[in-house]
């Protein structure tokens, strides 16, 4: 900052000394121009806030956008800059702008990547379109019968209730032989051989044998 002031001060002295010299002679500055253009997210430029600002290097240079979306940043010396569009409603990509004696060269940049890696270059004057709108709010899920029935627990419950009604009817309509077969199968079901958790714990506590317990249970 100090060196900047000093240089502008020396500029001033130079101007005073050589009143007839061209003022732009001491520091060569450039103009960064561009335009915000409508896109699918921003259909009409009047949706933009009037406070939308173009910021260079964290506020070293800045400009407001005009009504037609155009912006001009004056008096930018040579260097490499980060250009941001400060808007509350829309998200814009961040742009790296290199200013040298050949002119202004913009590139795409990603925050967190190394500055020495330039991204793909962009056309100049800049034409920027909004990437997306800013979503500040989470959608609150309200109460609806449909969402209630979409709940897996409710579906499970409903299904079991349904079975409660249908099963006896199915059993009643079954062939008596088939029914007997089914019952026999059920007794041989390997699941029945599985140790029961509660009795296991009970046995463990009392120091009993769980085979015995199972055998007793089967006897019952």
């Amino acid at each position: 900052m100090h060196s900047f002031i000093r240089s502008s001060f020396s500029c001033l002295v130079l101007i005073l000394l050589s009143l007839f010299a061209i003022p732009s002679f001491c520091v060569e500055t450039y103009k960064i121009e561009g335009k915000l253009v409508p896109s699918s997210t921003l259909k009409d430029l009047s949706q933009l806030e009037p406070t939308t600002k173009i910021i260079l290097d964290g506020g070293k240079y800045s400009a407001l956008i005009r009504k037609n979306g155009k912006f001009v940043i004056d008096d930018v010396p040579q260097g490499s800059y980060l250009l941001e569009i400060s808007s509350k409603k829309f998200i814009y990509p961040k742009i790296r702008v290199d200013v040298d004696s050949e002119g202004v060269k913009p590139f795409v940049t990603i925050i967190g990547s190394e500055w020495s890696n330039t991204g793909p270059s962009l056309q100049y004057p800049l034409e920027l379109s909004a990437r997306s709108t800013s979503e500040y709010f989470m959608v609150r899920d309200g109460f609806s019968i449909a969402s209630l029935f979409a709940n897996p627990y409710i579906i499970m419950m409903g299904f079991s209730v349904l079975l409660l009604f249908i099963m006896p009817k199915m059993m009643a309509n079954m062939d008596p032989d088939a029914l007997r077969e089914l019952q026999e199968n059920q007794t041989q079901n390997p699941l029945a051989e599985m140790p029961d958790l509660s009795s296991t714990i009970a046995n463990f506590m009392s120091g009993g044998n769980n085979n015995n317990a199972n055998a007793e249970r089967r006897r019952n």
């Binding site: 001033l12 407001l64 005009r66």
Partner: peptide, 28 residues
């Protein structure tokens, strides 16, 4: 701003900037 004067025109119903003119070297 610093040594420059900036004249801006604003649209009074929307607040958009219409034009901007930087006037330099005032008071030299």
């Amino acid at each position: 701003r610093d040594n420059d004067y900036i004249v801006r025109s604003w649209e009074s119903h929307s607040g958009f900037m219409l034009w901007e003119n930087r006037i330099k070297n005032v008071g030299l």
